[in-house]
Design a protein around this nucleic acid. Sequence first.
DNA 1: GCAGAAATCTGACGATCAGTCAGATCGGGT
DNA 2: ACCCGATCTGACTGATCGTCAGATTTCTGC
Lengths: 216, 216
Amino acid sequence: MTGQVRTVDGRVAGRRGQATRQKLLDCLREMLDTSPYRDVKVIDVARMAGTSPATFYQYFQDVESAILEIANDMAKDGQRLKTLAEDQNWAGKGGFAAAEALADGFLEFWRDYEPILRVVDLASAEGDKRFYKVRQKILTAVTGSLTEAIENMQAKGKVGDEVQPNAMAGTLVAMLAAVAGHQKGFESWNIKMKDVRPALSTLVFMGVTGKKPPTR
Amino acid sequence: MTGQVRTVDGRVAGRRGQATRQKLLDCLREMLDTSPYRDVKVIDVARMAGTSPATFYQYFQDVESAILEIANDMAKDGQRLKTLAEDQNWAGKGGFAAAEALADGFLEFWRDYEPILRVVDLASAEGDKRFYKVRQKILTAVTGSLTEAIENMQAKGKVGDEVQPNAMAGTLVAMLAAVAGHQKGFESWNIKMKDVRPALSTLVFMGVTGKKPPTR
DNA sequence: GCAGAAATCTGACGATCAGTCAGATCGGGT
DNA sequence: ACCCGATCTGACTGATCGTCAGATTTCTGC
């Protein structure tokens, strides 16, 4: 399934090689936690991993390729978000609970991978196809599930069809991702995440069902 | 009002100096349009401006400071967004029109300044206070206006107060900014901006008023 | 346990860029 | 024409990039 780990010149990496490679990835990830993306240098990563820059280039084309590698792992983990939007009953109180769970899922996922997601966001906005694809992989599944949900609501005639299900779903997902990505920003802005959570859930619920959430 | 333009060592720049400085900023901006942020080099900017790297350092501490300068100008222009959310009547059809205008304002503003806003977003997410302040300056005014609007709606008793006005306003603004910042992404995703616009407006309207938008 | 082979690592190098400074150049005022 | 402050730049040091040939480590068959 997953292709074997290979060095830049195509050789298959053995036990030792995989270990150093992983160590480099770990150090890179730690580096991104603490330094601005622009300031992450190969030489620092190598030093932190107790190896030489030349070794880094044995396993990765450049820093971006290495980050892409981390991002791909992340994308696998990201498939859990999809299950939160899939096959839910969006009506009534259960629907609102689903919206809350979805919001929580995004908030948590972004908390886990914040620095990587920052870079993925930037690079895909800059037009890098490889990063765009990763972002896609994470978000597209959720968007698809939400689209279906909205289509169902519209089919039942409960919601007007002035809004394209696809566009609404994409917008909601973008919103969730954006808010999740600026959690620290919100906090230092005098807005508590405790208050943002209901706002997010409410908007998701309203976007999907077209109704106010049930009072409880 | 605006402090005089100064060189790094504190001298006030004259006519000629201001011209080269501006030229450097223009070239930097053009550079950001075409190259990834991480790959923008002082030497390239200087070359494009027909001057030497040393001249660049006469006017700017580093690349970031120069971008910050551009970002500050942008923030001034961004005050037009505030007027779109301010003193609006959010009820009924007029309210929906206001929501549409606000969405359009964001979409257009982001289209004008996309590459700069990308960097501002990244840097402020990375914890750079200076960039955070710029981002704040643009978004805080809009958030404030929206907060007031929601508070008014709640005061009239038309909307439940399960949701903090501040948090809802912040969430809506984050959504607007996110969608505006991924316009190209949406397009290449089979979602047309023409369809996103109503989705955005609908969510803004529902977020502020708590109701479905009027059918028309 | 050992020789040979394969895998892995690294020192060293040329190229590029960051950032600084002293001195060259420019341009307006007299 | 001359002066003087403003402006620009060549040239330099130090850091990083990215590559390669050769050194070192690990594995394999015996």
